[in-house]
Design a protein around this nucleic acid. Sequence first.
DNA 1: GGTCATAGGTTCGATCTCCGTAGTTACTTA
DNA 2: TAAGTAACTACGGAGATCGAACCTATGACC
Lengths: 111, 111
Amino acid sequence: MEVRRAADLLERRWLLSILYASLAGAERFNEFLQALEGIPPGTLAQRLRQLERAGVLERRTVPASPPFAEYRLTSAGRELAPVVEAVQRWTGRRAAAGVEKGPPSPKRPSP
Amino acid sequence: MEVRRAADLLERRWLLSILYASLAGAERFNEFLQALEGIPPGTLAQRLRQLERAGVLERRTVPASPPFAEYRLTSAGRELAPVVEAVQRWTGRRAAAGVEKGPPSPKRPSP
DNA sequence: GGTCATAGGTTCGATCTCCGTAGTTACTTA
DNA sequence: TAAGTAACTACGGAGATCGAACCTATGACC
């Protein structure tokens, strides 16, 4: 069951959104912070570090004034695009099918 | 950013493995328990309920002796197959590329 | 020299989630 | 009566995530 090797990385809050934002062009800490409305900065910092350690993102400091950090996808990171796209297609199809929030409570009879 | 609609469901521990097991044919509580070596039963029960509420799995009690429960993918659930497969392909490619556990610590110079 | 603004974080306590182990209920078979 | 099977639930503790505030460094402005 090979998916389990990805669990520690992917099964974490905000991770899909971070990948999506990154694939969509976000590169700087504050860009992620805005794109992911609501993420606590501590969590974002932790995720970016985890993705960096996993070889998905690459961090570099740009020596401008003031200097800033840039997070870019590595080739391994870009290979995650199909995952994100598959999730997008799924949610897209569900939204189209009218599943918004509360699914009509699939009653389960008590034994 | 449509992926966020899937976050509450997918960004949870064991979820990818549960989907994988289900796509691979697991149907009963104890089958999942064995396929997902190490999952606490409480967590499994919670996930199965979440997936049921999300309309991904369908639970029915089979009136045998003793009666047992059966969890099967709905059509919406089967449409998650591309997600699981994309993750599988990614981990497969990484394993082939030799990324096993500890990536060689991408040194980050202190400012 | 003092104050702002910008960028990229860190720190802290509270809360939520997850873990490991044990126990429960209902039925059946020996 | 005892043991087995199936599907869970209960519980205390560990770990992950949260919101809000704070910190450091640089340069621009006054």
